[in-house]
Design a protein around this nucleic acid. Structure first.
Length: 635
RNA sequence: GCUGGCGUAGCUCAGUGGUAGAGCAGUUGAUUUGUAAUCAACUUGUCGGGGGUUCAAGUCCUCUCGCCAGCUCCA
């Protein structure tokens, strides 16, 4: 629904002729009215999408209008149907429904005048012209008026209204805590460093994040290492990816796909535009905070995909599967757009366009769901340990008190098996679609946490979207549980967590570098002089054949300078070649990890790299193999 | 959105009212180098943008844009 509001000195209108069949019957006054005092006129264009919930848009507009009227000290409001505000009008029936509803709501507080619907009307007004005298509005079904939101809050239905907090240690002992004195909990007196991280996470969740005022390290790294950067041709929160960053992104996606396939999912892909009048929008909008991007191709309002579910659910709904085929497992690389508020977007931690690696399992029973839930939890723990946060992470949980009590032992055992402490936030009732979900939180250098993976237990959407399996008798049953999981919550956040984790290394005197399989250049050949370039190229060919990204620094610099540059680029292995190597055929390998130089044969070197990257995806060099051919992207 | 901070060369930054600078990077030349910076010369500017104060503004005022931090929320 689109609206235009005007604060006017007076307002007169007169119905002239019928514009359509469904026009309202004019009352005795022949649709004429003259208001000779200050009033508010609301021109209203009801849109197709509003049919999802006419009462929702009406309540929002009513609430805004009442506030506006009180601010302007006005007691009369005119409801004026004005279809020309939108290119995508609803049916007259819906529009009338909205007007009726609106009239009813407004008349509780104000004197309301209705202009007739479906007539060509003459009108006359005089806008007062002060800064608050004109305003436009856009309302989407599914949003609640702020009063309704406030009521909800009081009823304790908002996710922030958690009523119980439980900390669980590595042994599986649980401790109830509260926001006042959580720091007294004996768990935090334990020696293992992971409890310090847990405390940091709990205090971020319960209290205030510590204000370090520092720029996160990952932003510096993403630019200076030419991975990702701001894009001045786009808006904030949308980034450009340089070749090296893109390589890393694609390798992570390769890995996520590999993981999903091993799990038994098939990969599919949905569009990024969602029709505004499709029922998923109305059903799910409220759960994603309406931070949508609207797109108008001239055929009615559409939304850029704001989450994976609104398209993944229809996909599963339309898939026919039987009790022999459950759980139905799907995997998707889902590009999502969220029109985050100004000031919320920050580096790679919070962006407006991100790629999720999304997994769903539609399960036929709780038992089936439990099994999948466990498998995914343990799998993601490996990801956190091996790739993203190398032991510097903790587990957060959100769910209902009821689900927690019923499944306490099981939930706690999951964390125990992952060897990670956990923090539960529990609410009395479900506020979203999940009964329980966990969040894998990487702990960063600046005392913050970055949420990456998640596994969620959805008990609502099987039924709501009629996603179900066919039983032995040919009857369809909605799935009682759908597991939602995201291996790499988003690629952007994954990269953020990896970079922040590297920053912690650097601070502790460990050489900062990417995991070998993600290093854009895994090995660089450094020639002692340009006479060895042909030999270097030959060597490069040999090594490259074994799926190793190796380039050659052929620039006219001293060996010392080239080493320095290679180290600054975090290249794991630097191979200096000169007379000695040419004669012996051996390599002089400088390893960044242990800061040592070793002599080994070419085969030994290849074997070592292959062994260290075994099972991980591979892609070739993102830039020309001769370093002299690399352009400068950042500085 | 609100509060605070920052914005000067491709990068990192100095410049507190009086001729726009340094280091790195880049280009050219010399050098042919053995494990974290070879030497020299040269190039590089809408001082984020608009407006104002002033004889004079990178510097002071004002508006605006961008970035960062916090509030809030999430993947």
């Amino acid at each position: 629904m689109k609206t235009l509001g005007i604060h006017t000195k007076y307002f007169r209108f007169e119905g002239r002729e019928k514009a359509m069949e469904g026009a309202e019957v004019l009352k005795a006054d022949h649709g004429e009215m003259s208001i000779d005092h200050e009033c508010i006129v609301i021109f209203i264009g009801v849109e197709k999408g509003d049919s999802e919930s006419p009462s929702s848009v009406a309540s929002q507009l009513a609430s805004d209008t009442v506030k506006r009227a009180s601010a302007l000290n006005v007691e009369t409001v005119v409801i004026y149907p004005y279809v020309h505000l939108t290119e995508n009008p609803s049916t007259p029936r819906i529009a009338l429904q909205v007007m009726d509803d609106l009239e009813q709501r407004l008349s509780q507080y104000l004197s309301v005048v209705r202009a007739p619907f479906g007539w060509y009307k003459a009108f006359d007004l005089s806008c007062l012209g002060h800064p608050l005298s004109e305003w436009s509005g856009r309302y989407i079904p599914g949003e609640e008026a702020e009063e309704a939101k406030a009521e909800e809050k009081e009823e304790g239905r908002k996710p922030s209204e958690f009523v119980r907090f439980v900390v669980v240690d590595l042994e599986g002992e649980d401790y109830e805590v509260n926001s006042e004195d959580f720091s007294q909990c004996p768990v935090f007196k334990k020696k293992q460093p992971v409890y310090k991280m847990l405390k940091q996470f709990v205090s971020n969740e319960l209290g205030r994040a510590e204000d370090t005022g520092k720029r996160p390290k990952h932003i510096e790294y993403m630019q200076t290492h030419e991975l990702v950067d701001y894009c001045d041709a786009s808006e904030k929160g949308h980034y450009k990816w340089y070749p090296k960053g893109l390589l890393i992104q694609k390798l992570i996606l390769d890995y996520a796909a590999q993981l999903a396939h091993e799990w038994g999912a098939f990969e599919m892909k949905n569009p990024i535009i969602i029709r505004g009048d499709h029922n998923v929008v109305g059903e799910l909008m409220g759960e994603f905070h309406e931070r949508d991007y609207q797109v108008d191709g001239g055929r009615g309002v559409c939304y850029l995909r704001y989450a994976s579910d609104p398209l993944a659910f229809p996909f599963m709904q339309n898939t026919i599967f039987t009790h022999k085929q459950t759980p139905l497992k799907v995997y998707e690389e889902a590009t999502c757009f969220r029109n985050e508020q100004e000031g919320e977007v920050s580096g790679l931690k919070r962006v407006r366009n991100f790629m999720m690696t999304d997994m769903h399992a539609a399960c036929a029973s709780n038992e089936e769901a439990r099994k999948e839930y466990e498998i995914l939890c343990l799998k993601f723990a490996e990801l956190m340990n091996n790739i993203i946060a190398r032991g510097r992470w903790v587990l957060g949980w959100e769910g209902t008190v009821g689900f927690f009590e019923e499944n306490k032992d099981w939930l706690i055992s999951i964390g125990k098996r992952m060897q990670v402490p956990a923090f539960f936030k529990l609410m009395p009732e479900m506020s979203h679609y999940f009964a329980i979900k966990n969040e894998y939180q990487a702990i960063t250098d600046d005392k913050a946490n970055v949420q990456v993976s998640t596994v969620q237990w959805d008990v609502k959407d099987g039924e709501r979207f009629n996603i179900g399996y066919i039983d032995e008798n040919g009857h369809k049953h909605p799935c009682p549980v759908i597991i939602h999981a995201s291996s790499f919550g988003s690629i952007e956040r994954t990269l953020c967590a990896i970079l922040e984790n590297i920053a912690i290394d650097a601070k502790r005197g460990i050489a900062p570098m990417f995991p070998l399989w993600l290093s854009p250049t895994q090995a660089r050949i450094i020639t002692v002089s340009d006479t060895f370039i042909p030999f270097a190229e030959e060597l490069c060919n040999t090594i490259s054949r074994y799926n190793i990204r190796v380039d050659i620094d052929d620039r006219d610099d001293t060996v010392g300078k080239k080493i320095r540059n290679g180290e600054k680029e975090w290249i794991p292995y630097l191979l200096v070649v000169g007379e000695k190597e040419k004669d012996s055929g051996n390599l002089s390998v400088r390893s960044r990890e242990d800061r040592r130089q070793k002599e080994m044969t070419v085969d030994e070197f290849i074997g070592m790299i292959n062994e260290k990257t075994e099972g991980m995806p591979f892609r070739p060099l993102p830039l020309p193999r001769l370093v002299s051919k690399h352009p400068i992207f950042y500085g």
